[in-house]
């Protein structure tokens, strides 16, 4: 058996999702990629909050927690150092971005404090929702842009704070996870036994097609190929069609197998990074890890 070389085929790229097929490789590789995308691709997130004034209804730590969960545009994340690795003593512009927020409600109506009230010191690192409204003219977002509410202020209440965003990974805290969804499934291999199918009545065929909750099959009456597999990727291996076939006494009507070397990946971003970048960065990280081992191995061999 010869060594396989993995292949990748992009099915779809949207603003916030990417779907691709990874094939000719092993579960371990696919899962490693998935895990790294979730836990180790760095982004920027608010990590430290200094309150100067807060007489809102929410307590300090609650607001700080909410600020942390706001996704920030992190395209430039690789320019930043982790604060722990940075040469500065406490923090500097190379490892952090400062945000300011100062809202006081003077109206009789309640004032919503949202992510758009966060003023960044660095134009490249801003809340995702703010970036979407900036790009509104040239690029229609998939979702209507929406400010993320932080707290509501009523007349006389004030919120003033300084927030510091840092580089981090999802392993440390969920707020740094760039991917809302990073998952794969095995590609299904579905074969309908045409001989058995022909033995069924039209009503049975229709019922059998309807038995699939994921609508994998389609049924068009009065045509030669009445039953077709519309989209095998929709299959979720619930085996409802097989169960249905059993009730007709035809267990071999359909065979569903998993191709365990073909993985359909779906990655959806929080907006911090482009979906394709998440995959690229993840591969880079895996590569770097391997390179690190390689160099260590080499140096140790050389040192004897």
């Amino acid at each position: 058996m010869t060594a396989r070389s993995p292949e990748l085929e992009i099915l779809e790229i949207k603003n916030d999702t990417i779907t691709f097929i990874l094939s000719n490789t092993d579960i371990s590789v696919a899962n490693a990629l998935r895990r790294v995308m979730i836990a180790e691709v760095p982004t920027m997130c608010i990590d430290l909050v200094e309150f100067e004034a807060n007489n809102s209804v929410l307590c300090d730590e609650f607001i700080a927690h909410r600020l942390g969960l706001i996704p920030l545009i992190s395209e430039e994340v690789n320019r930043f150092n982790y604060t722990r690795d940075c040469s500065c003593s406490e923090r500097c512009d190379n490892c952090s971005v400062e945000f300011r927020l100062h809202v006081k409600c003077t109206d009789d109506k309640a004032r919503d404090v949202t992510s758009s009230d966060l003023i960044s010191q660095n134009d490249m690192v801003i809340p995702v929702s703010s970036a979407q409204s900036l790009n509104h003219n040239n690029n229609t977002p998939d979702r209507p842009e929406q400010e993320i509410p932080i707290v509501k202020l009523r007349k006389g209440q004030e919120l003033k704070l300084k927030a510091i965003a840092k580089k981090g990974v999802g392993k440390e805290h969920a707020k740094w996870i760039p991917a809302c969804v990073a998952t794969y499934q095995f590609q299904p291999h579905i074969v309908i036994n045409q001989n058995r199918l022909d033995e069924l009545s039209d009503k049975q065929k229709e019922d059998w097609v309807a038995s699939c909750p994921a609508k994998v099959y389609s049924y068009v009456p009065h045509q030669r190929n009445q039953v077709t597999i519309e989209d095998p990727l929709r299959c979720m291996y619930c085996m409802e069609c097989k169960k249905k076939a059993d009730t007709y006494g035809k267990p071999d009507l359909v065979t569903i197998e998993q191709k365990t070397d073909r993985f359909i990946f779906t990655v959806e971003t929080t907006g911090a990074l482009k979906p394709e970048d998440i995959v690229l960065y993840a591969i880079q990280i895996i590569k770097r890890k391997l390179t690190d081992i390689q160099t260590q191995l080499q140096t140790q061999i050389q040192e004897g």
Binding site: I27, S28, A30, N31, R34, R35, T183, Y184, Q185, F186, P213, A214, K215, R234, M236, Y237, C238, E240, Q258
Partner: peptide, 27 residues
């Protein structure tokens, strides 16, 4: 209702182990 949404009738789903990436035997 679940079936209409493309889910298994009884709410069962195939799942994959997060650590090994392998699919569980049972839904």
């Amino acid at each position: 209702q679940l079936k209409k949404a493309g889910y298994n009738y009884y709410g069962n789903e195939p799942m994959y182990s997060g650590t090994t990436g392998q699919e569980f035997e049972a839904n």
